[in-house]
């Protein structure tokens, strides 16, 4: 159930990437897909009634959620920000050249 809700978010982002014409909408769709995948990985590592992987003094090491997916996703979030910035830079360049964010117009202007 929880995993399926997460995949619905992914499907919404996929719909935006395929069907929308505005470049900003496409970038937003890719961001939504990133959210869904990050969430899915963290959901895999959750343990019922677990505690966060930060150790305290004099605490017995028991019932801790899985730190491995969290470590993988921590890098993935920052990479997502960098790739979003790269996509935005490409969109700015295209807007300066053609004066529009609409991808169908760009194809027409190419001739």
């Amino acid at each position: 159930m929880t995993y399926f809700l997460c995949m619905i978010i992914f499907a919404v982002g996929l719909y935006a990437v395929v069907a929308k014409r505005n470049m900003i909408k496409i970038i937003i769709g890719i961001m939504v897909m990133e959210y869904a995948l990050n969430m899915l990985f963290v959901l895999f590592g959750y343990r019922q009634g677990g505690r966060s992987p930060i150790l305290e003094r004099f605490q017995e090491i028991k019932n801790i959620v899985d730190p491995l997916p969290q470590a993988l996703i921590l890098t993935a979030i920052v990479i997502g920000l960098a790739t979003t910035a790269l996509m935005v830079a490409l969109a700015v360049r295209i807007y300066e050249k053609y004066g529009t964010f609409d991808i169908t117009k760009i194809r027409k202007l190419r001739g």
């Binding site: 961001m31 963290v42 959901l43 959750y46 959620v65 979030i77 920000l81 979003t84 935005v88």
Partner: peptide, 22 residues
């Protein structure tokens, strides 16, 4: 809620920066 405070901090900050960029 999923007991990942590291990720919560990073996600919050990254969200602000990507919002500024967009």
């Amino acid at each position: 809620v999923l007991k990942a405070p590291d990720l919560a901090i990073v996600q919050l900050v990254v969200e602000i920066l990507s919002l500024v960029i967009l």
